Amino acid sequence: MPDSAAVRRVRLSEADRVRSIRLEALRDPAAGIAFLETHDQAQARPAGFWQERAAGAALGEFSAQFIAEAGRDWVGTATVLIPEPGGVDYFGRPHVAGRALVVAVYIRPSHRGGGILSALMDAAAEWAGDQGQRELALDVHEDNARAQAAYARVGFVATGMTSAGPNGVEREMLRAL
């Protein structure tokens, strides 16, 4: 990989690092349109929240968080969710069977454009496929052209579907597995 970063699933013992990269992501200039929580909200969460989040991301059957690690530094992350059949997603849309959701994608600005997004999405796709999913879906804010272009480069295609979220209009993109 160009940035010589390795991608792997988070580990149960890494709650502090899960919290740290989430807080870093929420400081990004695009965070206001890219994430559904604020830095202050995440920072106020108790240690138990982060331990539970790390446990689910490391061991869960319905969620997995992947990180890109350059040396000992975490420089990127993406989380995959498999919604409960018959349930609804974070925008209240009915879950589509065979569709995993990619959320909380972040790559440190100094490492963007070097192949990390592709590696994270490949790891997400492999895990989702192993869980019996047929496609990955994600939502990207209509004003986030940089992210839309990056996702298109790694195989996501805009469906033409939009949703009104708390941050504005989100465009749905899919990647077949």
Rank of each mutant, 00 (worst) to 15 (best):
I82L: 14
R45N: 02
D130I: 06
A78T: 12
S118T: 14
A123V: 10
P109D: 03
G86P: 05
P166Q: 12
A47C: 00
R112W: 04
Q41L: 04
A123D: 08
S110R: 14
N167E: 12
D143K: 10
S118N: 15
L23K: 01
F91P: 09
L101H: 15
A6P: 00
F49L: 00
E172R: 15
I82V: 15
A125S: 13
A34C: 05
A124F: 00
M173K: 04
W74K: 03
L136P: 09
A70P: 03
V96C: 14
G165F: 08
A55S: 09
A97R: 15
V10H: 04
L101R: 14
A25F: 05
Q131N: 04
W74Y: 03
L177I: 15
P85F: 11
F156K: 08
G98I: 00
A152W: 08
L174N: 11
L120P: 10
E37V: 11
L36M: 06
Q51G: 04
G114W: 08
A57M: 08
A64Y: 02
A5K: 05
R22V: 07
E14H: 00
R171D: 00
R19V: 04
V140H: 05
E14K: 00
F35M: 07
P46E: 09
F156V: 05
I82G: 05
V80P: 03
S118A: 15
P83C: 08
P83T: 06
V169W: 02
D130H: 13
D3T: 13
M1G: 15
A124I: 07
Q43I: 00
I21C: 04
V105K: 09
R99K: 11
E24K: 07
R45C: 01
I107V: 09
